[in-house]
Simulated assay, not measured.
Amino acid sequence: MRKKIEMCMLLEEAKTACEESLKDNSYILYYDRYIKLLNKINSIKEAVMDDKLYTEISDLSIIKMIIENDPKELIDSVIKVNLYYRDNFSTVFS
C-alpha cells in the first residue's frame, strides 16, 4: 500500500509539472504533446489506484514523451516516476 501511495504522489507531482508547462506560453509549441502526457499520467495513476498497473515492462511510456527542451521540473518529475516504477513495480528487473 505504501508503494502505491508513493507512486501516486510522484504521479501527482508530474501532473502538476505538466499542467504548469501547459500554462507557460513559452511552451505553446508542445501543447498537444503535454495534453497527451497529462492524459497518460492520469491513466497510469488510475491503473495504480485500481491495482491494474502493468508491471512486465521495463519503462513507463511517459519517459519517451519528454524531450530535452521541456521544463526541467517536468523532466525531473517524469524521471522520478519512471525510476520509482523500475525500482518498485517492474518485474523485469526482479
Results as ranks from 00 to 15, higher is better:
residue 56 E to L: 11
residue 86 R to F: 07
residue 68 E to S: 13
residue 77 S to D: 06
residue 35 I to R: 03
residue 24 D to I: 08
residue 9 M to Q: 11
residue 24 D to E: 12
residue 66 I to K: 05
residue 85 Y to M: 07
residue 18 C to H: 02
residue 43 S to E: 14
residue 94 S to H: 10
residue 80 K to V: 05
residue 81 V to C: 15
residue 22 L to R: 03
residue 85 Y to L: 04
residue 17 A to S: 14
residue 43 S to W: 02
residue 15 K to G: 01
residue 78 V to Q: 07
residue 81 V to N: 15
residue 26 S to F: 04
residue 49 M to E: 15
residue 76 D to W: 01
residue 22 L to F: 01
residue 71 P to M: 09
residue 88 N to A: 06
residue 26 S to L: 08
residue 1 M to N: 13
residue 65 M to L: 12
residue 67 I to Y: 00
residue 83 L to M: 14
residue 71 P to C: 11
residue 31 Y to A: 05
residue 11 L to S: 03
residue 93 F to H: 13
residue 23 K to P: 00
residue 56 E to R: 11
residue 1 M to P: 08
residue 50 D to V: 01
residue 13 E to Q: 11
residue 34 Y to F: 12
residue 77 S to I: 06
residue 21 S to M: 11
residue 92 V to L: 14
residue 69 N to A: 05
residue 43 S to N: 11
residue 37 L to E: 02
residue 41 I to S: 05
residue 42 N to Q: 13
residue 27 Y to H: 12
residue 48 V to A: 09
residue 13 E to H: 02
residue 19 E to N: 00
residue 9 M to C: 04
residue 30 Y to C: 10
residue 15 K to V: 06
residue 4 K to C: 11
residue 67 I to V: 05
residue 30 Y to K: 13
residue 50 D to M: 12
residue 58 S to F: 07
residue 86 R to T: 05
residue 72 K to S: 10
residue 51 D to C: 10
residue 41 I to R: 03
residue 59 D to I: 05
residue 48 V to Q: 12
residue 41 I to V: 10
residue 90 S to F: 14
residue 68 E to H: 06
residue 82 N to Q: 13
residue 22 L to N: 01
residue 26 S to I: 08
residue 44 I to M: 04
residue 24 D to V: 07
residue 28 I to Q: 08
residue 5 I to E: 13
residue 14 A to I: 00
residue 38 L to T: 02
residue 6 E to H: 13
residue 57 I to T: 13
residue 87 D to L: 13
residue 84 Y to A: 13
residue 29 L to D: 03
residue 66 I to V: 15
residue 64 K to V: 00
residue 7 M to K: 07
residue 29 L to Y: 13
residue 53 L to R: 11
residue 87 D to M: 08
residue 39 N to G: 04
residue 94 S to E: 11
residue 81 V to W: 11
residue 2 R to T: 11
residue 91 T to Y: 15
residue 76 D to I: 04
residue 75 I to E: 03
residue 59 D to P: 01
residue 49 M to T: 09
residue 73 E to W: 01
residue 90 S to A: 14
residue 51 D to Y: 03
residue 80 K to R: 12
residue 19 E to A: 07
residue 78 V to I: 15
residue 44 I to V: 09
residue 93 F to Q: 09
residue 8 C to L: 15
residue 45 K to C: 12
residue 12 E to G: 09
residue 86 R to M: 15
residue 69 N to V: 03
residue 13 E to L: 06
residue 89 F to H: 10
residue 3 K to C: 10
residue 18 C to R: 02
residue 49 M to K: 14
residue 59 D to G: 03
residue 44 I to Y: 09
residue 32 D to K: 01
residue 89 F to N: 07
residue 82 N to W: 04
residue 4 K to Y: 10
residue 80 K to N: 14
residue 54 Y to N: 11
residue 92 V to K: 10
residue 6 E to I: 10
residue 38 L to I: 00
residue 17 A to G: 03
residue 40 K to V: 00
residue 13 E to S: 10
residue 24 D to A: 15
residue 42 N to K: 10
residue 85 Y to H: 10
residue 46 E to P: 00
residue 10 L to E: 02
residue 19 E to G: 01
residue 70 D to Q: 01
residue 18 C to N: 04
residue 62 I to C: 02
residue 30 Y to V: 00
residue 65 M to Y: 01
